[in-house]
Design a protein around this nucleic acid. Sequence first.
DNA 1: ACCTGAACACCGTTCAAGT
DNA 2: ACCTGAACACCGTTCAAGT
Lengths: 185, 185
Amino acid sequence: MMRTDAKKNYDQLLSVARQVIAEEGADASLRDIARKAGVGLGTLYRHFPTREVLLEALLRTGFDGLTERAGELERCNDAAAALVGWLREAIAMTHDHKGVIAPMVAAIADENSALHGACVGLRAAGARLLDRAQKEGLARPDMDGNDLFALISALAWLADQPPLVPRADHVFGIITSAILTGPTR
Amino acid sequence: MMRTDAKKNYDQLLSVARQVIAEEGADASLRDIARKAGVGLGTLYRHFPTREVLLEALLRTGFDGLTERAGELERCNDAAAALVGWLREAIAMTHDHKGVIAPMVAAIADENSALHGACVGLRAAGARLLDRAQKEGLARPDMDGNDLFALISALAWLADQPPLVPRADHVFGIITSAILTGPTR
DNA sequence: ACCTGAACACCGTTCAAGT
DNA sequence: ACCTGAACACCGTTCAAGT
């Protein structure tokens, strides 16, 4: 069990980090976060030895929500709508924490990253929805969870680039239509 | 006209920058480049007042090659193949200079960026190829040069993320099939 | 005209010293 | 146990001083 003063610092750090990262992005200055939290820099490193650990803590509830949501949608009638709806939600989630998609992509290949588990879980949840849609003949068969993860990442990145934001929704539509359409032409 | 010593420094800087950026990416340390070029840091800033100016100088021949190539392809019989082939080349070009796609995307909305002109030219070249394919009924009509630029950017970014590289080609195929297919399903 | 490098204000990360 | 902040090795950017 954490000492109560440590717990207080931890919570304060997390709260300030959420705020700062929402403004500055996932590559915000850790020094700045510690400063704004009124805490020594070493304390931040004690609680979050790595930037990924901090991001994981910030995104945990979001990740959990998404995998839970995937479970619900698996029991939805329309497997195509379930897949596309979940994709949209997954992208929206990263959109709340700009700059987070690059570390997430890096984490999926790095078992030591604090974000690894969450990303693998995300990929698996998407893969299940995709698999169901494929079995019903609603999604192109020449894709797997890795392709889906790559597409989600690309769309999330796109939605993070201010000049591309106006087109993000439309591009989302183009790509989902490709997923739901038959294989090569 | 440049003084000959200045010209020598300029060339040396450009050559070292090409090398360093190939290894470290477009966000490589400018200090490091100056150091390796055996030149004062101020000299680098004199010749390349901004990182974008340096990137533009590095990519100029690549940009020119791509717009020229687009001109050739416009006279190709198969408008669909011309479009897809050019997309592939455009993405390959950024792939040679990792990390360059983010500044390029930023530049398209920033008229003051040294990369602005090149990016606008790229978008225009793609738009012409797209337009021709659309007029022949070979590409979906609900797209324009902005969408194409966004898709190229997303694919270029994807090809820059090591864990996603294995899927990059396949995802490219999925997306081009969406462009060449009819509109929504 | 051009070059240099110190100066300034920042980083991330570590770690001895304190409570 | 936990916290602090100095220390170290880096950045990008500017600019006085030199040739």
